[in-house]
Structures are given as structure tokens and as C-alpha cells.
Amino acid sequence: MKSGKVLLVEDNPDEEELARIAFRRAGLDSDDVVVAHDGQEAVDYLFGSGAFSGRDVSQTPKVVFLDINMPKMNGLEVLKRIKSNEATALIPTVILTSSDELSDQISGYRFGANSYVRKALDFKEFIENIILMRHYWIDVNCTPTEKSSRP
């Protein structure tokens, strides 16, 4: 069974590659992970604009993993856009960042983040965290945007 798309919003190529490795180890096919390299690209993907015009926006990601510090549009601005639009407001959005700033945590939750996770500096711990998040957000969590498989 397809587990649904994950939108990873990450501008650092090294951290993107680590996340891709972690997602593969967590059982996600590379086709299930879409990467946006900055905040504007994430918004374009979600709303079918820019390079993604014509994309079927009814096919929303099952979860968005969102970095905060990015070019063009920071993650908190992206979060505000996601949560303020009826079409995307219910998509679980996890801030996945290296920021340990209390102000970022407070802003993240105020703007509607479903979770705030600091990127582990240790590779093994990072992989374990991604596996846990993948399991929770893809396998366990139920969102009202999903079609029920129940009769």
C-alpha cells in the first residue's frame, strides 16, 4: 500500500541527503518523498503555482517536514501559509530544524505546527528520529484529509 507523499522542505543539500537516507531506512520509497529546497518552492508545490502549476493540489502530502531557516521564505512564513489556507490547513506540519531558539518554538506552535523536532546532531539518532516520525505521521496518525478505508 502506498504510504502517501512526504514533503521535506530543506535547503541544505547535506541534510537533505541525510533525510533521504533516513526515509529510505524507514521504508519510504524515493517516489514518496518530495523535496522543496526553499520556502517559496514549498508554497509553489502545495498550491500548484510557479514550477508546479498544473499539479493536482488535491493530492496533498500526508505530512510536511519543514526547516525554519531557509532562503526566499522562511519556514515560519511557510507554516503560516499552510495553516491559513483551507485546502492545506489540516496537513500535519512538523518543524524539523536545528534551531533551539525558544522564540522559534513558540512561534512554530502559535502558527499551527503539529510538532517541533530538533535535528539530532548524531547520525544514528537522526535516523532513529526520522524512523519514529515516519511511523507516527504515516502509519499511526489519522488526519481528516484522508479518505477512510472503512466501509
Rank of each mutant, 00 (worst) to 15 (best):
Q59W: 00
S98D: 05
K147E: 12
D104I: 03
F126R: 11
A26W: 00
V78E: 02
L8C: 01
D29I: 06
S149G: 06
T143I: 10
S115E: 15
D139F: 03
P144A: 13
Y45D: 02
G112E: 07
P71V: 10
T145C: 07
K5I: 02
A19D: 06
T97Y: 14
N85M: 08
H37A: 04
R81M: 06
D38S: 12
S103K: 09
D100S: 08
S3A: 09
S107I: 05
Q59D: 05
D104C: 06
H37L: 07
Y136Q: 09
I131E: 08
L96H: 12
Y116W: 15
V140T: 12
V57K: 02
T97A: 02
Q59L: 12
E17A: 13
M70H: 11
Y116N: 11
G4P: 13
I131P: 01
S3I: 04
A19Q: 07
R150M: 04
I130F: 03
M1V: 11
A42I: 09
T143Y: 01
I95F: 02
E101T: 12
D31K: 15
S3M: 13
Y45C: 01
S115Y: 11
G108R: 05
D56H: 05
D11G: 08
M133H: 06
S107V: 08
S30G: 07
P13H: 14
K83A: 06
N85H: 12
G75D: 02
N69M: 15
K124C: 04
K147V: 08
Y116R: 02
A42S: 14
F123Q: 06
